[in-house]
Computed example of a mutant assay.
Amino acid sequence: MRGVFLSIFSVMCMLVFSTVMFSGGNLLMFWLFLELSTLSLIPSFFLYLDSGVLPSLFSYIMVSGVSSSLIVSGVLFENFLILSVMGLLLKFGLFPLLGWVYVVTVYSNWLVVWGLSTVLKSAFLFFGFFLSGGFGLWLVGCCCFFTFIFVGVFLWLYTYGWVYFWTHVMVCSSAALIVMSVEVSSDLLLYVYLIYVVWSTLVILFLSRLDGMVVSGGGYYFLVVFLLVSFPGSLVVFYKVFIGLCVYSCGLVAFSGWVFYNVSEQFFLVKCLIGCGLPRSEWGGCISI
Rank of each mutant, 00 (worst) to 15 (best):
L6Q: 14
S10N: 05
V11A: 13
V11L: 14
M12D: 14
S23F: 15
S23A: 15
G24M: 14
G24K: 07
N26D: 15
F30N: 03
F33A: 00
S37D: 01
L39I: 08
S40D: 00
L41P: 00
I42R: 00
P43V: 00
F45R: 00
Y48D: 03
V53T: 10
L54R: 04
P55H: 01
P55F: 01
Y60G: 01
M62V: 15
M62C: 15
G65V: 05
V72D: 07
S73M: 08
S73E: 04
S73N: 04
L76E: 05
F77K: 07
N79G: 14
N79C: 11
L81W: 03
L83P: 06
L83Y: 15
V85R: 02
L88D: 03
L89I: 13
K91H: 08
G93K: 02
L94Y: 06
L94F: 09
F95S: 07
W100Q: 05
V101E: 05
V101C: 07
Y102P: 02
Y102L: 07
V103H: 07
T105M: 11
Y107T: 08
S108V: 05
S108L: 07
N109G: 06
N109V: 01
N109R: 01
L111W: 06
V113D: 04
W114Y: 04
S117H: 08
S117D: 09
T118G: 00
V119N: 09
K121H: 09
K121F: 09
A123H: 11
L125T: 06
F126H: 08
F130T: 02
L137N: 13
G141F: 05
C143A: 10
T147Y: 03
T147P: 04
F150R: 03
F150Q: 05
V151Y: 03
V151F: 07
L155R: 08
L155S: 09
W156S: 02
L157A: 06
G161D: 06
W162M: 03
W162A: 00
V163I: 14
Y164G: 03
F165E: 03
F165M: 11
H168S: 08
H168L: 02
V169Y: 02
M170A: 09
V171W: 05
C172G: 08
S174M: 03
A175S: 09
V179H: 08
E183I: 10
S185E: 13
S185N: 12
S186I: 04
S186H: 05
D187A: 11
L188C: 10
V192Q: 10
V192M: 14
Y193G: 03
I195W: 04
W199H: 12
R209G: 12
R209S: 11
L210E: 13
G212V: 07
M213K: 12
G218H: 10
F226W: 14
F226T: 13
L227P: 02
L227V: 01
V229A: 14
S230V: 15
L235C: 08
L235E: 02
V236Y: 13
K240W: 15
G244I: 10
L245T: 15
V247C: 14
V247S: 12
C250Y: 13
G257H: 08
Y261V: 09
N262Y: 12
S264Y: 04
E265A: 11
V270E: 06
I274H: 13
G275S: 14
R280T: 14
E282L: 11
G284M: 13
G285C: 11
I287L: 15
I289P: 12
